[in-house]
Design a protein around this nucleic acid. Structure first.
Lengths: 233, 233
DNA sequence: GCAAAAGTGTTAGTCATACACCCATGT
DNA sequence: ACATGGGTGTATGACTAACACTTTTGC
């Protein structure tokens, strides 16, 4: 810091954190991963996973690091949402936070032991506990962003296993958007996009007619985009 | 800073700036306001207007301050876009920057003398000079955001004087989106939304049939939104 | 055979697109 | 009278929304 002119030094006194809203999906619907804080402030409260950004740590890398420490997962969908900078948002000092959301396949998640979390767990998006800091505001911003994105980009698949049924996909959309959709219209629309590859495989062990399985064909999507296609649901 | 535990102090060594993409619109099309840097680094280069965020300054307030110092305007449309955090993006140290874009009525702009700008000027979005720092990347992010927003929210009016013609409005959209639109279809669509109040007034002094003037009815928009309407162009 | 979810088409209405001529004004 | 942009309607195709019954499996 010695190389800085005197008059600039007082500006280099902020800290920055990243906070992540980790979305997952299962039979019960859309969920998010919360941690129970193991350290002050707000020890014992549920909060979004997050950590301070190191002085020489790239912002996106920090977000990936937090996610990986918490879930053991790398290489997942991760998107910056926005930065929250109210002066008094953190009791320890001037800490701004950059919010990210990520989409993971909930079945891939394994509990990890991270320094800042005494406990972690999935919460249904409908039944959330009170959150520490301004994390409810952050969560709302991320949820709003997810709802817009999921209709304009084929990112819903990031929440599903590789093979899935059309009904599961429809329930995914319904539970993210909070709406009900017509089965026939949904299938018509999504299949017409020609992004799903039907597999020669079906569910088994279910007490009803087994559904066919599909896979999202990412290469096909990229090709269509290059030809001017744009996803919309 | 004394109240911080030892192990946290090294995190409070970052600086944060805000950078703004100020959009304006006139007969020539969409423009942005650039400054010529009066200080190192990049002295003499064109750059986005921006400044460091004070240790006790709210983030949004900082963005408004920069905009006001530059243009003399307050109370304009201002939206946070995203935060750029590459480690080496600033030569003086670890400075992250939060990008904002704003929409102003170009005729309201008066040159101000601000400390960090030797000069300032409007540049056609098509003919920009090379920019300092990573400001080209920031600009692109803001432009992309503007293009999406302008189709989903009635914010284009922020760039126009209170009274405007339908042709001007159409040219505004065309120059933001980089497309051409059909005159009849455009008028049909925008008038069908019932957001524009036709005035008993027309252009004058033009060498052709004078166009009728309209005003954006914000109260009407708010009412329609409450009833479930959503703007789309 | 019953419960449970899978799978499948048609119709009516709405919306988007394409397109060409007359009008009012200034010079 | 001419140049300039203002202003207007219709027809076609595409997409959206609404809607009910048969099929396949496990128990």
């Amino acid at each position: 810091m010695d190389h800085l002119p005197q008059e600039l030094q007082s500006y280099f006194t902020l800290a920055l954190s990243v906070d992540g809203v980790v979305f997952g999906f299962d039979q019960e619907g859309l969920k998010i991963l919360l941690i129970n804080r193991g350290a002050e402030p707000f020890r014992g409260m549920w909060a979004l996973p997050g950590d301070l950004v190191g002085p020489a740590e790239d912002l996106d890398i920090a977000a990936k690091r937090v996610l990986c420490e918490l879930t053991g997962l790398g290489n997942v969908y991760l998107e910056q949402v926005r930065t929250f900078g109210r002066i008094d948002r953190h009791p320890l000092g001037r800490v701004l936070t950059v919010a990210y959301f990520s989409l993971i396949k909930i079945e891939d998640y394994q509990v990890q032991h991270s320094s800042w979390a005494a406990d972690a767990g999935w919460f249904n998006i409908q039944k959330l506990p009170p959150l520490a800091f301004d994390h409810e505001e952050i969560l709302n911003a991320c949820l709003t962003r997810l709802r817009r994105r999921v209709r304009a980009r084929p990112i819903g698949f990031e929440l599903l296993p590789e093979k899935f049924t059309l009904s599961t996909l429809q329930h995914l959309y319904e539970s993210i958007l909070g709406t009900e959709m017509d089965k026939r219209n949904f299938r018509k629309k999504i299949l017409a996009m020609d992004l799903l590859e039907p597999l020669d495989e079906a569910q088994n062990g279910v007490a009803h007619r087994p559904a066919k399985l599909f896979r999202f064909d990412k290469a096909r999507y990229n090709q269509l985009v290059a030809e001017g296609f744009s996803f919309a649901l």
